[in-house]
């Protein structure tokens, strides 16, 4: 667990929301506690990819994240899961959850299918 002396300031760049980190809490948990909504909340446990963000500035450490939603390449570019990210300085993050959607999916003949940001296989295995 990171031991913070002073809380860090986290900024969600898409929504402009700002909130403080909480010792031992992930970015997503601290966001929920501050009643901000800029990052979509899913499983809260690193499996579903709903809370995927790109860290634009600052230091952090991460817990284990499902490779099905965060590839090695993603991680190298600072794309991580907010629910498994622990700030070690002030952080800027950009929520990717609803933005990375690329192109119409096959078999989307009905309106409610929500394609998620998923790394293509090739990239994932790279």
């Amino acid at each position: 667990m990171p031991h913070l002396i002073t809380p860090h300031l986290i900024t969600i760049e898409n929504s402009g929301e700002r909130f403080q980190s909480v010792d031992g809490m992930s970015v997503l948990a601290a966001m929920e506690q501050a009643r901000c909504r800029g990052i979509p909340v899913g499983c809260r446990n690193g499996g579903c990819g709903a809370c995927k963000v790109r860290v634009t500035s600052g230091q952090y450490r991460t817990g284990k994240m499902s490779r099905a939603v965060v590839s090695v390449a993603d991680e190298a570019q600072g794309c991580v899961l907010a629910c498994k990210t622990y700030p070690q300085s002030d952080l800027g993050v950009e929520a990717l959850g609803r933005i990375l959607q690329t192109g119409p999916s096959r078999a989307t003949s009905f309106s409610f299918a929500i394609p998620r940001p998923e790394s293509p296989r090739s990239e994932r295995e790279a």
């Binding site: 909340v41 899913g42 499983c43 579903c48 709903a50 499902s66 299918a113 998620r116």
Partner: peptide, 11 residues
């Protein structure tokens, strides 16, 4: 109504 996560959150 279905909640936000029903359709979009899976593993």
């Amino acid at each position: 109504k279905i909640n936000e996560s029903f359709l979009s959150v899976f593993t």
